[in-house]
């Protein structure tokens, strides 16, 4: 999985209410529609700034708050290819894996707004082209890589009908 795109940078503790506000998430299950409101309370113009394949980069505890799966789904539908942060809240982490949104844990201090990144998930390498530096990625446990590489938990269940990690 090779990913390439530019950075939209946020701070620590980006919660799921910021990713997609409760006032929108109840309105519809149309994720393309919800995608328009991603990060709206932190940056009202966010959706219009994103180009296909871009990255959201945060600090610590990204995705804390509610269990709403609309959060990763709306991010995927806003054409974001991966979320990169120092650490993730656990339900959000599970939800990303299960819905097939790549998630990368690494030190994000040397990644700034607008930087161009190249990521090779298998090799565990993130290259910041703008700064000319390589950043080490914390590797995902095998079970999670398997679900992610199959395209999420729905695909996993379609294939096996239950959990299968053998």
């Amino acid at each position: 999985m090779d990913l390439k795109g530019k950075v939209h940078k946020f701070g620590d503790d980006v919660n799921t209410d910021y990713i997609i506000s409760g006032r929108h998430k109840f309105k519809t299950l149309d994720m393309k529609e919800l995608a328009k409101y991603v990060m709206e309370d932190l940056d009202p113009d966010f959706y219009s700034k994103v180009s296909k394949g871009d990255f959201i980069v945060g600090g610590r505890n990204f995705g804390c708050g509610s269990s709403r799966e609309q959060a990763p789904l709306a991010i995927i539908n806003a054409d974001i290819d991966a979320v990169i942060a120092k650490s993730f809240a656990r339900i959000f982490y599970r939800n990303c894996i299960n819905t097939g949104l790549a998630l990368i844990e690494c030190d994000t201090d040397q990644i700034d707004e607008g930087d161009e990144l190249e990521i090779n998930l298998q090799a565990g390498i993130l290259y910041n082209r703008t700064k000319g530096i390589e950043i080490q990625i914390t590797p995902l446990p095998e079970v999670m890589l398997k679900i992610l590489s199959e395209g999420g938990l729905v695909e996993h269940f379609k294939k096996y009908g239950t959990f299968n990690f053998d």
Binding site: S67, E69, N98, F157, T162
Partner: peptide, 13 residues
Amino acid sequence: GVGSTDLAAGLLS
């Protein structure tokens, strides 16, 4: 707490 896809997997299996 889990997300909706986890919930679906739980409902089914």
